[in-house]
Simulated scan of single mutants.
Amino acid sequence: MCPRCNKRVYFAEKVTSLGKDWHRPCLRCERCGKTLTPGGHAEHEGKPYCNHPCYAALFGPKGFGRGGAESHTFK
Rank of each mutant, 00 (worst) to 15 (best):
P38T: 10
H23T: 05
V15P: 00
G33V: 15
A69H: 11
H72R: 08
P61C: 06
W22A: 03
R24I: 10
W22V: 09
G19E: 06
P48M: 09
T16S: 06
H44A: 14
V15Y: 00
C29I: 03
T35L: 11
R28W: 11
E43M: 04
F74S: 08
R24L: 04
K7M: 12
G60T: 11
Y10E: 13
C29H: 02
K62H: 11
P3S: 10
K75R: 10
A56E: 03
T37C: 09
F74H: 05
T73W: 12
F64Y: 11
Y49H: 04
L18V: 03
G63W: 10
E13Q: 14
A56D: 03
P61E: 14
P61L: 08
C50E: 03
E43N: 14
G65Y: 06
P38S: 13
K75M: 06
G39L: 12
V9A: 08
G19R: 03
T73L: 12
P25S: 08
G19Q: 07
K20N: 08
L18G: 02
W22N: 01
G33W: 07
S17T: 08
H72I: 15
H52C: 11
A57W: 01
G65V: 09
P25K: 13
R31L: 09
G60H: 05
A42H: 09
E43A: 14
G67T: 12
K34A: 14
T35K: 13
P25W: 07
Y55M: 07
G33S: 15
K47H: 13
K7I: 03
W22R: 11
P61A: 12
K7P: 00
K20M: 11
C29L: 09
H23Q: 02
V15W: 00
A69G: 05
H72V: 15
K34Y: 01
T16M: 06
S17L: 08
C50Q: 02
M1S: 13
K62Q: 11
E13G: 07
E43W: 09
L27W: 07
K14D: 04
H41F: 15
C29S: 09
N6G: 01
A69C: 10
H23W: 03
F11Y: 15
P61S: 08
K75E: 07
F74E: 14
K75Y: 01
C32W: 02
